[in-house]
């Protein structure tokens, strides 16, 4: 797994998601909320992702499902990149 976007997402999760498990060992499809990410932690993850990727999530993406897994976050970031292109 050398996907740089997912690696960067994993780093943001390690710094901000306050998961009881190591973010590096999480499968891409794992449910982050089930893994222990709280509602407030997910907001900090959202803001940190905006900084890390220099993007702004549109209001329609400010919902639980957009941040529920590494895959979901990568898809959301991909969608924003596509709209910006």
């Amino acid at each position: 797994m050398t996907d740089p976007i997912r690696a960067q997402i994993r780093q943001v999760l390690a710094d901000h998601a306050r998961l009881p498990t190591d973010a590096a060992s999480l499968p891409d499809g794992a449910d982050l909320f089930q893994a222990g990410m709280t509602s407030h932690a997910s907001v900090n993850v959202m803001l940190a992702l905006e900084d890390a990727f220099d993007i702004e999530f549109p209001d329609a993406m400010l919902r639980r499902s957009a941040f529920e897994s590494i895959d979901a976050i990568a898809a959301a970031i991909g969608e924003i990149a596509l709209q910006a292109a």
């Binding site: 509602s39 407030h40 997910s42 907001v43 959202m46 803001l47 209001d59 400010l62 919902r63 639980r64 499902s65 941040f67």
Partner: peptide, 14 residues
């Protein structure tokens, strides 16, 4: 604010 929109969505989903 924007944090709040996300908190509100989480609150509803849960």
């Amino acid at each position: 604010g924007r944090r709040g929109r996300m908190l509100a969505a989480n609150q509803r989903a849960a």
